[in-house]
Structure formats: C-alpha cells, structure tokens
C-alpha cells in the first residue's frame, strides 16, 4: 500500500550545539547574577568594616534567617508552578501562637510540633483544593488564608506568650561548634536539610519535574498525561508545611508567640525567591537560588546593622529596589526568549 520510503539526506540544522550551550546557560544567568551580587556585597562590607570578613558573620546570615530559608523553599515550589502564596507569614504566626499556647499548658513539645505541622500542611492543602477545584486565583484564596490564619492568632491571644519550655529554650541556645571557633544553630542544620530535600525533590523526582512542567506550560503538562491537578494541590500543602516548620524555627529563635509576629514575611519570602532568579510566571528557577536570595536580604540587614547611621527602613527600600531590578531583568530575559 505504501511505497517504500526513500530516506532523504539529513538537512544541516541551524542550531549548533555550542550555541545551544550558550543559550542554555542563560537559564542560570539570573541566579548567577544573584550570587555575584551577594559576593560583591560581602566584599564591599569587608572593605568597609574589617570585622565583616569573618566566617561567623557569614554563618550568622543563616542563623538569623533559618525560618526565611524554609519559607522561601515552600514559596519556590508554589511560584515554580506559576502560583503565589500570600498566607505564609500569617501561618508562621499561627504556628508560633499554637506552639507557645500549648507549651504553656504543658503539652509535650514533640506532640506540639506534630500538631503544628499538621495544621500548617492542612491549611495549605485546603487552599490548594479550593484553588484547583473552584478555579479561583491563588492570590485571592491565599489572601483569605492569610486573614484566617492571622484571625485565628488573634482568637488565641492578643498578647505575646513567652516560651519557657525546656526543649524550645534548649534549641534556642544550642550552638553546634564548627572548626575555627565558628558555630551554627541546630535550626540552620534543619533548614539546610530541608533545602537539600527540596533540591532532591525538584531535580530528581517526577513530582519535581512536573512542578517545572506545569510552570512551563500547564496545558502541555496536562496533555502529556502528567498529574497536574494533584501536583498543584500538593505544592500549596508543601508551602503550608514549610510555613509551619518556619514557625517552629522562628519560635526557637524568638522564644515567644505573638499574633502580630511575622507581619509582611510573605513579602520577604517572595522577594527572596524572585531575587534568587525564579521567574514569577513559573517554570524557571532554583531552590538554591532562593537560598542565595535569602542571604542577600540577610546581608542587606547586616550592612545596616554594621553601618549604624543607616536606619532599618532602608532594608525595605533596598529590597523593593532589588525586587524591581530583578523583575525588570526577568522581563528582559522573557523578551529575548520570546
């Protein structure tokens, strides 16, 4: 029926491997720019203040921002799918309030932690379900989640509740010595552990690759037969879980629960992710970039602390400025790619 096909000789393709590699390198460009920015800032700091150039100053960036690192990890998953989660700051506060209250009532710290993780993950799962099944913008759903979580904080207590329980205070004071008279807190190890797991999940599991695929082209991902719905719901559950973990880490750090805590922390998390090179439209970015984004935010604060004449509000202005620069960079990359 069909004539034997004659194999026509291969046409030479226009795209040479070398050029591909070059253009493929562009996907690391935003993240590399962030790394460069961080190194430059560190170098400037070292030039201005001799004590800046110390291992402990670097490690303190981690110690002071464990919770933000974990938040940024969860946010990276959400943003990679093209979504957004505004509830994270409020969920952090809720987690702190719940643990502080329950610890005050003499609960076992292990049970408290498990319960807090369940609440955070559950809230996230709920938001994911609403987003997916009712087709409402993530922005609005997570905004409602933010109201809900913050409102629950107020319901629990309007006052700050101190944490005096042994395990939490122990975690707050514990230092893990490193060679060279340096140390980190246990929270840092936990946060870095979570980053490692997230990296593995994003780059070495089908779930992680589906997250990227959804961000690249949700319709295609669906047509390729990938589990789009489940993945999108799970991403919000993960973000809720990360918020709960961040809440516990923040409790270790601040040893209290306060309903107004972590205000605007969702903005810091989003800023860290964007500055770390993740596209807000989804599909491109790295969880390690988000960590560098957190470090950049941290170093801005360190700078201001070292300077002494600069006031704390410069942090917000600088973060806003960095956000702007990176958003404009992203537009530029997007235009080039398109």
């Amino acid at each position: 029926m069909s004539p034997l096909s004659t194999l026509t000789p291969l046409t030479v393709k226009k795209s040479s491997p070398a050029r591909n590699r070059l253009r493929g390198g562009a996907r690391y460009a935003p993240t590399l720019a962030t790394v460069g920015l961080f190194i430059a800032m560190f170098a400037v700091g070292a030039g201005m203040y001799p004590s800046f150039l110390s291992g402990q100053v670097f490690l303190n960036l981690f110690i002071d921002n464990t919770f933000l690192i974990v938040l940024a990890v969860g946010m990276t998953f959400v943003i990679l799918t093209g979504g957004i989660d505004l509830s994270v700051g409020a969920v952090v506060a809720l987690s702190m309030m719940v643990s502080a209250t329950l610890l005050q009532q003499g609960w076992n710290p292990g049970a408290v932690i498990v319960l807090v993780l369940l609440i955070g993950g559950g809230l996230g799962l709920l938001m994911g379900l609403v987003i997916q099944y009712f087709d409402i913008q993530p922005f609005i759903v997570t905004l409602a989640g933010m109201f809900l979580a913050r409102g629950l904080c107020y319901v629990i207590s309007l006052d700050s509740i101190p944490v005096t329980e042994g395990f939490f205070t122990g975690m707050a004071q514990a230092q893990i010595p490193l060679p060279g008279d340096l140390f980190v807190s246990p929270g840092v190890l936990l946060a870095l552990g979570i980053v490692t797991v997230a990296f593995f999940v994003l780059h070495h599991t089908r779930f992680g690759r589906t997250v990227y695929a959804i961000g690249g082209n949700e319709h295609s991902a669906m047509l390729m037969g990938l589990p789009v719905k489940a993945t999108k719901i799970l991403v919000y559950a993960l973000s809720g879980l990360c918020s709960a973990i961040a809440g516990i880490l923040f409790s270790f750090y601040s040893l209290s629960g306060y309903s107004l805590a972590a205000q605007g922390m969702e903005l810091d998390a989003i800023a860290a992710v964007v500055i770390g090179g993740t596209l807000l439209t989804g599909g491109t970015g790295y969880v390690l970039g988000s960590v560098v984004g957190v470090l950049v935010l941290g170093i801005v604060q360190t700078f201001i602390a070292y300077d002494g004449t600069l006031s704390s509000w410069w942090t917000k202005i600088v973060i806003g400025g960095l956000l702007l620069v990176f958003i404009l960079l992203q537009r530029l990359f997007a235009r080039k790619a398109g």
Binding site: R27, R209, A213, G215, G216, S220, M224
Partner: peptide, 15 residues
C-alpha cells in the same frame, strides 16, 4: 505541546 523551559531529554521522557 511540550514544555519550553525544560531540556530536550526531559521533554522526551517527562513523566
């Protein structure tokens, strides 16, 4: 209907 943000090999084997 592939994902432009992923590599060729991933697009061939995604899922």
């Amino acid at each position: 209907n592939l994902c432009p943000n992923l590599t060729v090999e991933e697009n061939v084997l995604l899922g």
